[in-house]
Amino acid sequence: MPSVTIALPALLEPVTGGVRELSASGETLRDVFGNLVRREPRLKPHLFDESGRLREHVLCFHNGVNTRWLDGWDGPVAEGDTVLFMQAVSGG
């Protein structure tokens, strides 16, 4: 099963004990997200809301592509892919 590198924003350091980079495996992004929050359950409410979607102001990029532009989370991932979480920034 492919392993994906996941980068987290600095603001979530207290949640993970200072860890900014994790790995999670899965065949799809949905698998990766599921395995990530199973491994780090405290991250779940900070990345995803009660509906299961990304929180409104959380951005997620899969290999540099905004996941909101994707047709869902069921596309395949490959070994070495990157997933970057960051907060939405609009203006200064």
Binding site: L12, P14, R42, P45, H46, D49, R55, V58, Q87, A88
Partner: peptide, 12 residues
């Protein structure tokens, strides 16, 4: 109790 407009609340 902490909270973020981006990342939501938590209890520590």
């Amino acid at each position: 109790a902490v909270a973020s407009d981006i990342y939501g609340p938590a209890v520590y």
